[in-house]
Simulated scan of single mutants.
Amino acid sequence: MGPIVVIAASAGGLTPIKQIVAALPASCSASVFIAWHTGSHPSIVPEILSMTSRLPVGHGEDGQHIEAGRVYVAPPDKHMYLDHGVIRLDHGAKVHFTRPAADPLFVSAAKAYRERVIGIDLSGYGGDGADGLATVKARGGLALVQDPEEAEQPSMPWAALMADHPDASLPVAEIASRVAALCCKGEADPPPRSDHGVAGASSILPANRS
């Protein structure tokens, strides 16, 4: 199976998400998961992404089996987790004052898929995604951050940069081309790293998914 791509975004993040998803080829071997801060408001993010995506896009569903070459968006007011081939949703406590949040998605992906994960932190307010991206890197995955100088709202990228040392901080166009190339290869090929823990990150997972 191909890479597991997890993307975090909030304010100012929709255009970068569209750019990354639109760059993915129809033959993409990755499974892509997006946590965008919609809160409890109705979300048409899948419909928006479908306009330019070569891959099927939809909201993730609880118990849904993960398939390669698909894009899954966290539905409104639900955290989305990855659990060894299956999507899990819940209405747990807000993380960084939001639900859905990126950290639950990122941490669960890192625990389940380790070096196969590509984590991407994009424009947004606050620090959601920072601990999760550090966990992705600690588990051997690839950690990418949008260049804060380019981001419409640089708080999330800066928080990710401060939480750890991501593999790269890049303009979205470069992130998109890099992810597309990795999808074509069918593997993320991250450099080997030691599996060290990230303080506080695992606490956002439900007890029965640790």
Rank of each mutant, 00 (worst) to 15 (best):
G132Q: 06
G69A: 07
R99M: 03
A163Q: 15
H41W: 06
K94C: 13
A8D: 05
A102P: 03
P206L: 08
Q19L: 05
K137G: 15
T15R: 01
V117N: 00
K94N: 11
P25N: 09
A8L: 07
H65P: 05
E61M: 08
S108M: 02
L105F: 08
L205C: 08
T98Q: 01
L24P: 06
F106M: 02
I17F: 03
G39C: 05
L49H: 06
V136Q: 00
P16D: 02
P56A: 03
E67D: 10
H65Y: 11
S50V: 06
G63P: 13
R54V: 04
E67M: 11
G12E: 01
R178G: 15
V179F: 07
P76A: 04
A143G: 08
S40V: 06
A143E: 06
D131F: 09
F97N: 09
P157N: 09
A130L: 06
H165S: 15
A112L: 00
Q19D: 10
A199L: 12
T15L: 01
T15F: 01
N208E: 14
P16M: 02
V71D: 04
S123Q: 01
V145L: 11
H79V: 10
V198Y: 09
L24C: 12
L182V: 11
G39H: 05
S43D: 13
D131M: 12
T98M: 01
P190Y: 09
T98N: 01
G60L: 08
G126W: 02
S194W: 13
F97I: 04
I20H: 10
G13E: 12
I48C: 14
Y72V: 11
A11F: 02
H96G: 00
L122N: 04
H65F: 12
C184D: 15
A188I: 10
V5S: 11
E149A: 15
A109F: 00
V57N: 04
L105S: 03
P16W: 03
L133C: 07
A26F: 05
S31K: 01
A159V: 12
G13F: 10
A8N: 06
A30R: 04
Y113P: 00
C28Y: 05
E67A: 13
S202G: 06
E115D: 11
R209H: 11
P104S: 11
G132K: 02
R54E: 05
K94Q: 14
S155T: 14
L161R: 13
K78I: 00
A181F: 14
Y72N: 13
A201N: 08
D189A: 09
H59L: 06
S50A: 15
V117M: 00
L182E: 10
V179N: 12
P191G: 01
S203N: 10
E61T: 08
P104N: 12
M1A: 12
P171S: 08
A199N: 09
A207T: 11
D164N: 13
K137I: 15
I17C: 04
A201R: 04
L170E: 08
Q64F: 07
E150V: 14
D62K: 05
W36Y: 10
D128A: 04
G127Y: 03
L133M: 08
V21M: 05
G58S: 13
S10G: 07
H165E: 15
C183I: 12
R114W: 01
S123H: 01
A181K: 15
R209S: 10
V45M: 14
K18W: 00
P76T: 04
A35E: 12
A110Y: 00
P148L: 09
E174I: 10
R99W: 02
